[in-house]
Design a protein around this nucleic acid. Structure first.
Lengths: 245, 245
DNA sequence: TCAAAAGTGTTCTTATTACACCCATGG
DNA sequence: CCATGGGTGTAATAAGAACACTTTTGA
């Protein structure tokens, strides 16, 4: 009979890609490591899962300890477990990503403020461990999710303008969108509440403010509605070579 | 300083949802457990990941030991890790799914043939551990994947008819499709090789045989082509109540 | 009065849907 | 000659893409 004890010598961690949106830019929260391995290099926030803790709970804990936020969008993405990914032994990590409103965010323990940074996703590279790969997997997932479910709103303040929403989509999808078509599409879904308010203190015509109507979305969902923004399709080629007489 | 040793007392397994397609029906390969816990109940094939083994390698190993097949479509889906999911201790499992051509499959060790079964996905329930939940997550992923990438062919013999392909999609998506529209769409992608052969020994007009053109697909991919079958959209409702004067 | 971003419709093109009959084969 | 599934096209509708000017505000 196999000695199962040999298998009970591993550990697992959760790593959390925390996305935020600010100044028209998609950002990720990173921590500078205080200890070896990878001391003084940046890494995704993460920690060991406690022996009596569910995976999702561990991811929530990591997020809350760092940001003070609860009830935040959080989803498991993928598990990374190559044999040599961690110098301390066999450690696999379950990657999560979360979406937070950067405006709601204040660093919790002032002591670590120094070592925590928002960084534009386009500038991040050279992270510790296999975190570049993890970030990339989570970003891919976000790209897919944002076209499939109305999660973009998690990254915006409660009240936002259509232009802000469009910029958010452009940042995530890394593409430009047509203003009129974007508005038409979003408004036709009938998921936004027009607050009948406008921006204040801007040096141009102030924009109307909207709010995501979560109740209506839940109701539409239950009626079989599916949120969908098309992928910008590059032309599917079409030329057929008939090879048979 | 934390005692990290406390964390190195866990184990992980891989579980593999192996899909096959036969007689117009989507099937899953299950094993009857020979030992406690859950003795004599059915479970997904899976096993502990060895200390020096990558996760993907473990999933491949489990698949190959059972089916003798290599170079098979295999993808990680999700990790399940509630604290009490395994009676032997803290064991999280990384779920994979694979797609195999059932016609290529012969059970490897005859000794275990008794305990291995293909079961229609619609009939499977009451699996060991949290395997019902795992199966359901993998099936959802397959539904998504089959509309997004040309993976259906992994489940069919090399040569197949368009009707077989349609039945496969219908089984996976759990819906009926229109014959003419389905054919038009599939053929317009120009990813099938018309073999200019027909079925033999059928008691009706024999159908043409086709083969998936993997090379062309790779080429199209690199040109930005994206495989896509639409979800059957239930009507998005549209009625707007204007709440503002 | 200028700069800056907000806001707004129409036309064209492409993709999706709905739908019914004749054909080829084996028994 | 009959039963069985194979194979085919068109018209209507819906969704997406392209595109430019006027409006409102603060400075």
């Amino acid at each position: 009979m196999t000695d199962f004890n040999e298998y009970f010598k591993s550990a697992f961690t959760v790593d959390n890609v925390i996305f935020g949106f600010d100044e028209g830019d998609l950002k990720v929260l990173l921590m500078k490591r205080g200890e070896e391995p990878y001391k003084d290099k940046f890494a995704l926030p993460g920690y060991f899962v406690n022996p009596n803790e569910d995976l999702d709970a561990a991811a929530k804990r990591v997020l809350e300890q760092l940001t003070g936020l609860r009830n935040v969008f959080l989803e498991q993405v993928k598990t990374f477990g190559t044999v040599d990914r961690h110098p301390a032994g066999r450690v696999i990590t379950i990657a999560y990503f979360s979406l937070i409103k950067i405006s709601h965010f204040t660093l919790q323990p002032a002591s670590i403020a120094e070592s925590v940074q928002w960084r534009s996703i386009s500038e991040v590279r050279g992270l510790s461990f296999d975190h570049d790969e993890i970030l990339s997997a989570c970003f891919d997932r976000l790209k897919w999710l944002v076209r499939t479910r109305p999660v973009g709103f998690e990254l915006l303040p409660r009240k936002f303008t259509l232009t802000e929403l469009q910029h958010l989509y452009e940042a995530i999808l890394e593409t430009k969108l047509d203003k009129r078509n974007f508005r038409k599409k979003i408004l036709s879904m009938d998921l936004l509440i027009d607050l009948d308010e406008t921006q204040e203190g801007v040096a141009h015509r102030p924009a109307r403010l909207y709010q995501f109507d979560r109740n209506k979305y839940e109701q539409f969902l239950s009626e079989g509605f599916s949120f969908e923004l098309k992928e910008n399709k590059k032309k599917n080629k079409k030329g057929k070579e008939e090879s048979v007489a």
